[in-house]
Each structure stands twice: as C-alpha cells, then as structure tokens.
C-alpha cells in the first residue's frame, strides 16, 4: 500500500523547466505573460514549501488549538479572496464579514461532522485529517460564495427598476428579490455541479490522483474522493445559501426597501 516514489529536488527542477519554457514561448510570441507566469510559479513554490513545513510541524504537535488557529487563518485569507472578487461589495464590516462568517460556518460544520462521524481519526482533531479536509471544503465554498455574492450584487444593481416595481405593487422584499436571488444561487452552485458531473470522465480529481500516486488502492481512493465531493457539495450549498440570503437581507430593510446605498 505505502510504496510511493519519493521525489527529489532534481525531479522538481526538471518539471519546472516546462514553466520556464512556457515563459520563453510567451516572450517569443510577445504575449506579455512571461512575468506574470514566472511570478505566479515562484509564489506557488514558496507558498507550498512553507505550507509543507507548517503542516509537518502541526502534524508533529497534534494540538487542537494550533490546528484551530491554522484553520482560522485559512478562513481569514479565503474571506479576503471573497471580498477581493466583488465588483460592488457591501459597505462596512459586511464587506468582509458576510463571506468570512458564512464560509467559516459552512466549512466548519461540515468538517466537524466528517471528522466525528465518517473519518473518526484518533484524536478527532488530528490535523493530518482536519486541515486538508477543511482546506478542500473551504476552497470550494469560497469559489461558490464569491460567485454567488458577486452575481447577487451585480444583478440587484442592474435590476433596481424591476425589483422596485414589485415592491411598489405590494410584494415583500423576499418575493421582489426572488428571481435575482435564484440567479445568484444558481451561479454559486454551478462550479460544484459542473465538477460533480465531469468528475471521473473529463478529469480525475487531484486528490484521488494524489492518493493513487501515493500507492492507495484505486477503489479506496474513489471512496475518499466521493466522500470529499459530498462534503464539498454540502458545504458549498450551505455556504452559498447563507451568504446569498444574508446578502438579500442586508440589501433590503424591514420597511421592504431596496437598499443599494449599502453597496460600495
């Protein structure tokens, strides 16, 4: 089972030549991508090397507090990403807070359930399981929430007249926003629906590929992948729903007005 091929630095350097080749190609074709490509590649290398060291340390100490702190840090960065992807974000604390809190709630609950019900490592907070699991769930919830909130704020801004027309005819705020809430939810759910539909035929998921390369039985790797996809689907759905409904609530008030003044 555990017969995996360890990689040397030379193996990695040889693979990195491919990226440099791409950069050279971009220079030759004057695409102007060489700089960006190399910086992104360098950033990835440094980030992953550092993460490797951090994970090695966390896995060695197995502290619930340090594990929790690492997860909080991950969610904080993901919250920033959600915020950065909004063209018309909410004003004030909501701008950061809505994405962060809904992501933390959805990813946190689903990770906790998976650790205590399905995977059951000993101890249950073992960072070897908790951190990669939380990371995968968080990353997908982040994409969904960012898309959902961005669609909501863009659509609501564009459809102000249509929303107010309904409010003026006596609709309440949830009813008036419903067509646009649905649109936002759909765009938030789309990546995970597409990923589930394409998985296994168009692409072999990265995690499953990794496990197979590391010597795990394919059928067992598939089981892990399915578990992860269900967890990701659940957390993304929950997170998108919470974030979009929270957004609708914030963009209207108890006198059933559309409050675009709460957008940047």
């Amino acid at each position: 089972m555990n017969g995996y091929v360890a990689l040397s630095n030379w193996d990695l350097a040889a693979a990195a030549v491919l990226l440099i080749l791409n950069a050279a190609l971009s220079l030759w074709l004057q695409l102007g991508l060489a700089r960006q490509l190399l910086i992104a590649g360098l950033r990835m290398t440094i980030q992953l090397l550092l993460v490797g060291l951090v994970l090695k340390f966390l896995f060695a100490v197995v502290s619930p507090w340090l594990t929790g702190a690492a997860m909080l840090f991950m969610a904080a960065v993901a919250g920033y990403e959600v915020m950065a992807r909004q063209t018309h974000g909410l004003r004030g604390l909501w701008r950061y807070g809505l994405g962060f809190s809904t992501m933390m709630a959805a990813a946190g609950m689903v990770t906790l359930a998976a650790l205590t019900v399905q995977i059951q490592p000993d101890p249950w907070y073992d960072p070897r399981y908790a951190i990669p699991l939380f990371g995968m769930i968080l990353g997908n919830a982040m994409t969904g929430i960012a898309l959902g909130l961005n669609t909501l704020t863009e659509t609501v801004t564009r459809e102000k007249i249509a929303i107010e027309a309904q409010l003026l005819l006596g609709a309440d705020r949830w009813h008036a926003m419903r067509p646009f809430t649905r649109k936002a939810l759909t765009s938030g759910f789309m990546p995970i629906i597409n990923a589930m539909a394409a998985t296994g035929i168009v692409s072999l998921p990265g995690m499953m590929t990794g496990q197979i390369l590391a010597g795990v039985e394919p059928t067992q790797a598939v089981r892990y992948q399915l578990l992860i996809m269900f967890l990701i689907g659940g957390a993304t759905g929950l997170g998108v729903l919470l974030a979009v409904l929270g957004g609708v609530w914030r963009l209207s008030d108890d006198r059933h007005r559309l409050r675009l003044d709460r957008l940047l």
Binding site: L167, L168, D172, R257
Partner: peptide, 21 residues
Amino acid sequence: TPAPEWRRRVAYLPAEAGWWT
C-alpha cells in the same frame, strides 16, 4: 401599516415601468 400593504393603498407609478419576467 406594513410597507407592502401601505404601497398597495398608496401606489406610486414611476416614470419607467419595471419588468421582472
């Protein structure tokens, strides 16, 4: 009066009508 009921009794027709479906 709840706002939706208020707007049914005191109706405002903006210059541009809105359409949502």
